[in-house]
Design a protein around this nucleic acid. Structure first.
Lengths: 197, 197
DNA sequence: ACCACAAGACGAGACGTTCCGTCTCGTCTA
DNA sequence: TAGACGAGACGGAACGTCTCGTCTTGTGGT
């Protein structure tokens, strides 16, 4: 009684896959996440609707995959390590603030967050494929700082990252305050004081 | 050319208003935010669709209002003040963690967050009507602590609240880790160390 | 190494549904 | 008596399923 007729990935058309993901990304930027429809993606991609339904379970999954595609190849993430943790973190946090302030990122990143909040499966995929590797790079820098005695040796690094990034992330998501370089610096200083050796 | 024929609020039916908000709240709990439709709300409330469209601009606004209704009368918010800031904050944070862990709050609060992220107008209303008063009560407690020398006198209280709550909020939203009483305590301890006098 | 061919993925789009937001109806009420 | 109400018809958009021919691709025989 199982309707699960599974398609054969080996015969999948790479051309169609790319066309769908490119169309999805373009449409999110143009009209916003909520107004993007599967039919519009299919039409823009020059693809049958069934081709989308065959390979993706939901609109969210398609758009999520289109973001994944963007960040492929960047897996060699590495943070600056000049030996000065505070300076390095401020550099990174200021860059993050600038990125969030960029209107080009506004629509897609907000769409990504909506998907993550609404769909636990996509939240898992996000953590594994996108956030995970980046967080690991950040933690690697923090471990280096621990060895250098610039951070408490017993600090929970996941917690350090939360304290550092969650306020920024929330302020952007809720539009509850300005994102300035000074704010980035303040978060770094606060976090370092909280987790000082 | 203005289509803005405005209805007369004085003649509004309180009975219908309550029925709509109650139906909206029930439906969000039953089927989740995404699957709730205006037609379903109208039908469940025993109300004409036009009555909803007459008084609310969007589905999000209806559901948002149904949450507002829930928290009416609680405006006398006041945090415990035993003189021991750390103990008081741990009490409050543990309660918040427990609240987030309650499955009854899961669907509605997640729906509320989706609306806030997606709609700037609702985000403003949220800050003004819901978060604002609560945050003010929290800041009042923090000011008391500043006077008692338990918190840096020049600390930015908005920032203190962000550092205290944003990690918890993000962890819940992203389902990126367990929400335990120990986690609540850790956030309080970290925050107090960061903003120590 | 080649080729023939069946399996099945493809583009296109018809189909029945659901829901949208607007619009009329009478009815009821403030 | 103006206008808010419940009910529901309406055209349109998008859903997810399905059925067409066509095109592509892995494989098995030569």
């Amino acid at each position: 009684m199982s309707q699960a007729r599974k398609p054969n990935p080996a015969r999948r058309s790479e051309r169609s896959r790319r066309a769908v993901l490119d169309a999805a990304r373009a449409l999110v930027s143009e009209v916003g996440y909520a107004k993007v429809s599967i039919e519009a993606i299919a039409s823009r991609a020059g693809v049958g609707k069934q081709t989308i339904y065959r390979w993706w379970p939901s609109k969210g999954a398609v758009i999520f995959d289109s973001f994944l595609e963007l960040s492929r190849g960047e897996d060699g993430v590495r943070l600056p390590d000049t030996g000065d943790l505070e300076a390095d973190l401020k550099t990174v946090m200021r860059a993050t603030v600038a990125e969030f302030a960029d209107p080009v990122f506004e629509a897609p990143v907000r769409a990504l967050n909506l998907e993550i909040v609404a769909d636990p499966a996509l939240a898992d995929a996000y953590r594994e494929k996108l956030a995970g590797p980046v967080d690991e790079a950040k933690k690697e820098r923090l471990r280096s700082a621990q060895r250098a005695g610039q951070l408490a040796a017993d600090a929970d690094l996941d917690l350090v990252l939360e304290v550092l990034y969650a306020p920024l992330h929330q302020r952007w998501l809720h539009r509850s305050g300005p994102l300035t370089p000074e704010y980035a610096d303040a978060l770094v200083e606060i976090t370092l004081r909280a987790f000082a050796p």
